[in-house]
Design a protein around this nucleic acid. Structure first.
Lengths: 195, 195
DNA sequence: CTTGATCTAGAGCAGGCACTCGAATAAAGC
DNA sequence: GCTTTATTCGAGTGCCTGCTCTAGATCAAG
């Protein structure tokens, strides 16, 4: 036998391609992105691309997974720093920033058409649940501390908040970005106790 | 000269093709729909299709325009029946029904990639403003009657409501439809006066 | 050095799709 | 009937794009 895989080099190249793919997807959406474009951006031939990812869809799933891991870390961080309402607002701020940069909304919008592909759906499902659980957990905590209205179950409030956030992202994809902290105020309005 | 265009027959055929296109777009999204599929559904050859619409995109714009007209009528009806908060809730119900049927979310999601095309963007813009103006007008009326909280400007409340609705639609496109009247309750929660 | 494996390139293939074109038919005016 | 124009058809075209294939470069182990 001979020539074992050099793990380090392999991962480096793979993540370089992944990064280029991620940028392409975020800029033009999945469908509009071409493997040729990704290869050009990564400075790599199509042969190399398909050596690392058996198909374009696999690259998308890999991007999705990687984004999911990042998100998980950030959510955990926010929750650790200050659980409850503060954590929810912290997540809101993160999203508001990304929405302002447009990459997130374009990326999400560009998934249309492949979101039903099982591998993609699975990845998205994981992410959705990650956020949903985070919201429910911290809204419940907020309710216990009296910072969040208690007249609706936490899971219902969480769903409204996530709808608001997704809707804002979508609106940003098609039109102008929302004004500073308008999303923030919306989330607060849903969650605050009626005096 | 001879053979003038038979307006009636022309419009009939055109709207038959348009109707088939509309169903295809709503079922599979724009990108996934093929002109061949639309032709098959309309019982028409591709030559005929392109005789009535110079391009697939033109068919989409026509569908969009037609939908916009329908919406305008329904909004006017709701507003005439009972202006103010009731009109907003009536529109919410309409949307909630369509979201439950999935056609609306799929259609919207399927626009990804062409939404930046100027003709499409223009059509979407008209629709967005139609709804936005409707919401602002009726939320303002609701505020005057004391049915809607007055501690935020109507345009801000309107935006939050439309975000919530769009977010719910998007969520329905990727996952299960929301439970009966959950959207309704969300809208109410945003708009109701804090006691 | 030889061997056998991975890594890389890039030309090219195959299939799908929007769209075209020429012919055939139908219908209205002369 | 004849001419002209609208309408319809559907085979065909050209392009784009995901993906394959082959040939060579590179490198570790024996």
């Amino acid at each position: 036998m001979s020539r074992p895989v050099d793990r380090e080099k392999y991962e480096a190249k793979r993540s370089a391609i992944l990064s280029a793919a991620s940028i392409q997807f975020a800029t033009h959406g999945y469908q509009r992105s071409t493997t040729a474009g990704i290869c050009r951006a990564a400075g790599v031939s199509s042969g190399t691309f398909f050596h690392y990812f058996p198909s374009k869809l696999d690259a998308l799933v890999a991007v999705l997974d990687s984004g999911c891991k990042d998100l998980q870390d950030r959510l955990a961080q926010a929750e650790q720093d200050a659980p409850g309402l503060a954590a929810v607002m912290s997540y809101t701020d993160i999203l508001e920033t990304e929405i302002g940069e447009k990459s997130y909304p374009v990326f999400i919008a560009g998934l249309a058409g492949v979101e039903s592909e099982t591998s993609v759906a699975a990845a998205l499902n994981v992410e959705t649940h990650l956020v949903s659980d985070f919201l429910i957990r911290n809204i419940e905590a907020g309710q216990r501390h009296g910072h969040v209205r208690g007249d609706f179950p936490a899971h219902e409030l969480a769903r409204w908040v996530s709808w608001l956030l997704n809707g804002a992202a979508q609106a940003a994809a098609t039109g102008p970005s929302p004004q500073e902290s308008q999303i923030r105020r919306g989330v607060r309005t849903i969650l605050e106790s009626p005096q």
